[in-house]
Every structure is written in C-alpha cells, then in structure tokens.
C-alpha cells in the first residue's frame, strides 16, 4: 500500500518500518504516506507500536533538497511571514500522533538516526538504541533548526547544557552518550533490538501509562 513505510501487526503489536533503504531518507512522499497512515490507523486493534528502519539504519533524516524546494516555492506563493507551510504542520501532526497515543510507542534505533529521524524517535515514548547507532541533530550546520518538535522534546529529555551543545554545535553522538544524557532509554546489541522492543512492548501494554516509564525500564535489567 505504501512505498516508504511498511506496516504489519504481529500478535497485536504493530510494527512500522521505514522502507526507503539504504538510508531511509524522509522525503515528501514519506511525509505524505506517514500522514495518511496516521489518519487511517485503527489503534483499537493494537496494544503497542515498534518503529524501526529497514536494513542497517533507522534513517538519515529529511531529504533536504526536496523539502527546501517545496518550502521555497511555498514562500514565493505566499510571502506572508506568518504563513507556514501546511505540509510542515501536517508533519508535526504525524509525529505527534505517536506521542499522543495511549499505548506504548518504541523507537528501535539501529545504525544512523539523524535530524528529522531523531525528531520522530523523540516523539516516541521509548528509544532503544543499538550499540553502534549514531544519533544527532545536525540542522544548525545547514543553517537550519530542527523544526518538528526536536528542540522542545530534547529539552524535556536531557539537561539544558547538553541540549544547547547538541543543537548549536550539531555534532553526532553515540548510543552510550545518548543513554548517559537520557536521550536513549536502553542500549543493546543491534541484532536483538527489534525482538527485545517487541517483547518489552508486550510486557507493558496492559494498563500502560507513560507515568510509569521508569518502572517499566526496570523490566529490562
């Protein structure tokens, strides 16, 4: 049905896979498909969602030239400074959809997870990272900022000092650093991460509330 995402349900756990390998970049088609998906999904039939990337990586983030071209043509059509592209506000709604769900949503991050991809992962309730995964918000080095809730969510997860450095310097960081900075909730071997995420999701699905996040994470030890 979709080309850039793939959805399956196994034993009531929904699995959303980003399927634009090798880098699973997020372009216009991806955001359109994700929006369509979030509007049509019947969440009553599932107890949890695990999000991952096909192949070695979660995602390298936004397809910048596509999005910027769209953005610039929108700006030419509507020079009003307060107007912002309906496309981008729809993208926030799509990401926010996962944040606002009452069932556990887990990002299982293997390999690279940059920019918009990390923004999407930060809208999830949990982030499990593969041992060799690499994360980052490099937008500032392109004279841009994370624009889909990345700044707000990062500030809520980690210390202000770490957030300022990661946002302004834009450096990538390892799974271990992400764990230390509270951006990742767990680090585990990449090979087992999807299975572990699914099992974890099953365990906490009954009576789930994000309020008990810390207690749920003890189940991993």
């Amino acid at each position: 049905m979709y080309t850039t995402i793939h959805w399956t349900i196994e034993d009531s756990v929904g699995r959303l896979v980003l399927t634009n390998p090798p880098s699973n970049k997020m372009g216009i088609l991806f955001f359109d498909e994700l929006s369509d998906f979030t509007h049509k999904l019947d969440t009553k039939s599932i107890s949890a969602i695990v999000i991952s990337g096909k192949g070695r990586h979660f995602s390298y983030g936004a397809e910048l030239h596509e999005l910027l071209n769209l953005m610039q043509s929108n700006a030419r059509d509507n020079p009003d400074r307060n107007h912002y592209s309906p496309f981008f506000s729809e993208n926030i709604s799509s990401f926010n959809f996962f944040y606002k769900l009452q069932i556990p949503v887990i990002a299982a991050i293997r390999g690279v997870c940059l920019g918009s991809a990390l923004e999407m992962a930060m809208h999830c309730h949990f982030r499990f990272c593969g041992e060799n995964s690499v994360l980052g918000l490099p937008e500032a080095s392109y004279n841009l900022i994370p624009g889909c809730g990345g700044i707000y969510n990062l500030l809520n997860l980690t210390s202000r000092l770490t957030a300022l450095e990661l946002l302004l310097h834009g450096n990538t960081f390892s799974a271990q650093q992400a764990l230390q900075w509270n951006i990742a909730d767990a680090v585990m071997p990449s090979k087992t991460i999807i299975d572990k995420a699914i099992n974890f999701a099953r365990k906490i699905a009954t009576g789930y509330s994000i309020y008990y996040k810390k207690d749920y994470l003890k189940l991993l030890q």
Binding site: N74, N82, Y84, F88, I145, G147, C148, G149, G150
Partner: peptide
C-alpha cells in the same frame, strides 16, 4: 519551532 524552521 516549525514557523522558525520555515522562515530559515
């Protein structure tokens, strides 16, 4: 955030 992203 999105508004500022779009302006940039």
């Amino acid at each position: 955030e999105t508004r500022m992203f779009c302006e940039l």
